[in-house]
Amino acid sequence: MKALRVSTLPDPIRSEMARLKGAGLHLLPLGGGADGKAPLIRAWAGPSLTLGRILAPMHRTGSQAYGVRLDGLAVIDCDSDDPALVAQMEARFGKSPVHVKTPRGRHLYYRAGGTATNLRSEGLPVDIKTGVRSYVVGPLSIRRDGGFYTPAKGVLGKDALPFLRGATPPKVAPILSGHRHVELVKEAMRMVELVDSAEELQANLAGIRDDWCADPATMPDSELRDLAGWAWKCRLENRIYRGRDSAFPIHRLALDALRGQANGADATALLVTLMDQHGHTPGKRFPLNFAAMRAAGLINLSTPRLRAARRTLERAGLLRLTSNHRAGSKCQTYALTRPHPGASEAENIAPLTSATPRKVQGKAGGRG
């Protein structure tokens, strides 16, 4: 006789889910992903799921968390439960009769109106989530890490919700077919740090596709999944560009090639400066005017030391000459190159030998 699985879903959560379903809210089972907040089923954004289809994967996986789909709803998701922040949000968007305390902040519920405002761009630790492809963790849910979603004010599904006041008016013109992918890439990079998973990002992109893109049926979910996965990978690899508040990679092979050189520290400083200024565009050609770099405060080494550092980068295969100097018409230009195992001598510069006069070597690279 087969043993029955013991349900780990507490009665209060099951009863709350049944009540919310009866009140007309759309729910979905959560418990996937590293944080346990990803949906347990793929096709959750279509027609409303029955209570049985929601509870089954939760029983199967031992999950005690569910999501409230924001079809016709909007939630102000505060990362902090600071009373001053909550008061600021309600002063701006209207009083919410339903609050749920999250493990680190608070959810304020409203009826949807317009499109969400990007409060992160204003420096506020707040997201506004809304739309058929969005959801928040529901009241009484318990995450895998023990985080609890506590009803703090009112009763969801019972208290009448006001419209979200002051939201950005919806767009009128659709995104045309020839511009859809580019626009969704921009939206993905704007939203990727505001969501909790690649699946949530894909769901948000699907909402934009369905609501604002021309001919949404011709843009498959697989394209959105690939786009969301790419954006999420950029986030995980710290490749989201935020102006000066961003990072860029340095290959360890490059540092290995410079380690042990007599002027390795100078060459490393010059390489980092060039990567900062030009590394974001592969193959970019640029002049090296050391006097201008010093005047701009980019680097404070002397011009002779910078010229020697440049030659070291060339010999290490990290910098190559792309065009020669022509008096009065063209500067010498260079490009950064990717390091590779075994790289030692660059093709465009001869190694230092006793037969090569140092004065000539200094002129070979042109004026810094």
Rank of each mutant, 00 (worst) to 15 (best):
E199N: 14
L201H: 01
Q202N: 12
Q202A: 15
N204S: 04
L205C: 03
A206P: 01
A206Q: 08
G207Q: 05
I208Y: 04
I208G: 05
D210F: 05
D210W: 04
D211H: 01
W212S: 09
W212D: 13
W212I: 10
C213P: 13
C213Q: 09
C213T: 13
C213I: 15
C213N: 10
D215G: 08
D215R: 10
P216F: 13
P216C: 09
P216S: 09
A217T: 13
T218M: 15
T218I: 14
M219V: 15
P220A: 07
P220W: 06
D221A: 13
D221H: 08
D221C: 03
S222L: 12
S222I: 12
S222H: 12
E223Y: 09
L224I: 11
R225T: 13
D226C: 06
D226K: 13
D226A: 12
L227G: 02
L227C: 01
A228K: 04
W230R: 08
W230V: 14
A231S: 02
A231Y: 06
W232V: 13
W232H: 14
K233G: 00
K233T: 06
C234V: 09
C234P: 01
L236E: 07
L236D: 02
E237I: 03
E237T: 08
N238D: 03
R239H: 05
Y241S: 04
Y241R: 00
Y241E: 10
R242A: 09
R242V: 02
G243K: 00
R244T: 13
R244A: 13
R244I: 10
S246C: 06
S246M: 07
A247T: 10
F248L: 05
F248M: 05
P249C: 10
I250N: 02
H251R: 08
H251L: 05
H251E: 10
L253K: 07
A254G: 05
A254V: 07
L255H: 06
D256A: 14
D256N: 05
D256I: 11
A257N: 10
L258R: 01
Q261I: 08
G264K: 07
G264Q: 06
G264P: 06
A265V: 07
D266M: 11
A267Y: 07
L270V: 15
L271W: 06
L271N: 02
L271P: 04
L271M: 08
T273L: 15
L274T: 12
M275T: 09
M275G: 07
D276G: 07
D276A: 10
D276P: 01
D276S: 09
H278A: 05
G279S: 06
G279Y: 11
T281M: 02
T281G: 02
P282N: 07
P282C: 04
G283D: 13
G283Q: 08
K284Q: 13
K284R: 12
R285H: 15
F286S: 09
P287A: 11
P287G: 05
L288A: 00
N289H: 09
N289Y: 00
F290G: 15
A292I: 12
A295Y: 00
A295E: 12
A295N: 06
A296P: 05
A296E: 15
A296C: 05
L298W: 11
I299G: 09
N300H: 08
L301R: 13
S302I: 04
S302H: 02
T303Q: 11
L306M: 12
L306K: 06
R307V: 14
R307I: 14
A308D: 04
A308Y: 00
